[in-house]
Design a protein around this nucleic acid. Structure first.
Lengths: 254, 254
DNA sequence: ACCGTAGAGTCTACAGTGTAGAGCAACGCT
DNA sequence: AGCGTTGCTCTACACTGTAGACTCTACGGT
């Protein structure tokens, strides 16, 4: 990955020849060989449609019309495949959009945050991986495409005036907030979609009134959730906080 | 669960008789029956020592000296067991400590945040569950103990002056931040512990210098990470932001 | 035309997984 | 004495990741 591509856009790509995949049917005898990218893309589709637990080597092999063991040519094992999925997603995250060169870093990061949210909402089943894989795979061993956003965000923060350590702190505050937000937004609530009453739709009637007064009274508020607004409101807080740290001489250059 | 216990302390407990477990050895013929709590505690121990993927029904049964199928009396299936684990942890989170009644809500929440971090660092392997299970199990179906912190936080925020919707927003900002933070703190970095050079220890030499200049130069900063300080610094930003929202008449009561 | 080699994929097999379904043994009641 | 309930076990099935050995094809060099 990472060819001439400097600032934005996906860089995961390693087709052997052309992009011809020659029909998924069972007709052709000599199929064009797979590639890491096609495998990952198929895996992503599978996860998007059937959920994470549906992603097994066997099912993926079936989908690609190949023996399951063939996949091990493109991913050392299942964990590596999952790491590849996080790369496939993170590498699509555009942080520096066209014409961002001369806008304030706050605006750039706010827009990037909204793009992150949009990207992740297109692939909600991958979110667990985004959170989980980095807990297992050390930073230095992750696919390069998964590190590109980190590098770019560090660039943004240093150009904004943060020193090395400050940029790192800023990155963690920013990305941590984003992760926390999507976790919140994707949490499951509705248990009975065809119920009229808000409380029943959420299954809150199970909670004893005496122990959960606040929660039980929040049914309607839980149901009308505006993720975009909440993200925007939250990112404002974070960015203001970061700016304050940048201006206070105590922690700024560091 | 949830007996007379009003504000703090764990509430998960459902022993049938006494707490006698009569030795784990293979001697006694008639063993005292299990309970959901003992099963969950054993599961937590297993996860703490051997990691999440080591938690299988068979291994857990072995540890409790029972047939794997016996566990299904205490958890409908593996997912329910995992939900139980998140309950076991969240229910230990003390939000209102003794003598918190008359301290400012900001201080209370700051201390609760540090307690959350400490709790979670004692059981790092459970963090994926904390993040992942709520994406599958709707709020209304979770074990009650897992909802207690939510209820208590809502209480804190309403007492602080937030309206229903405002309290919910505040909770999400607060908890989202906490989750984001521990994810950051528990991320894996070191790949070669016995290396001298910081860059080598992190395996950053694998990254092409031209594509990852910032990241590669951050080796030493990545290595000396002070999670407690970072949490405290972050929570300050969040609490100030929430306070600002509380004071601005636009969004406060709502 | 021949061989050698590398690449892509297959086949078989093994140890391990979650869990449905049936059944067993002991206890507390009436 | 009989019954139901509780706590647990046994067996079996469909499925998982992956090690190891193997086959088949295409291509390059001589």
């Amino acid at each position: 990955m990472v060819s001439a591509n400097r600032h934005d856009g996906p860089t995961v790509n390693d087709e052997p020849g052309g992009t011809s995949v020659q029909g998924t049917g069972g007709g052709g005898k000599r199929r064009s060989p797979l590639s890491r990218t096609t495998v990952l893309r198929a895996a992503l589709e599978l996860v998007d449609t059937d959920g994470l637990e549906a992603l097994s080597m066997r099912r993926l092999g079936q989908r690609l019309d190949r023996d399951p063991m063939a996949l091990y040519r493109y991913a050392a094992n299942r964990d590596a495949l999952l790491d590849g999925l996080t790369e496939l997603l993170l590498d699509q995250w555009v942080i520096a959009a066209a014409g961002d060169a001369d806008t304030a870093w706050q605006d750039q990061l706010r827009r990037a945050a909204h793009r992150f949210r949009a990207l992740v909402l297109k692939h909600p089943h991958v979110v667990p991986l985004l959170v989980t894989r980095p807990l297992s795979t050390p930073l230095g061993l992750r696919p390069l495409g998964a590190l590109r956003p980190l590098e770019q965000l560090l660039a943004v923060f240093t150009r904004a005036g943060f020193g090395p350590s400050g940029a790192l702190h800023a990155y963690r505050a920013y990305y941590g907030f984003l992760i926390g937000h999507v976790i919140n937004e994707l949490e499951e609530f509705v248990v009975n979609a065809d119920e009229d009453d808000a409380g029943l739709r959420l299954g809150l009637d199970r909670l004893p009134e005496s122990d959960f007064p606040h929660l039980r009274s929040l049914a309607s508020q839980l149901l009308d959730y505006d993720g975009e607004a909440e993200l925007d409101q939250g990112i404002t807080i974070v960015l203001q906080g970061l700016q304050a740290q940048l201006e206070s001489p105590a922690r700024a250059p560091h």
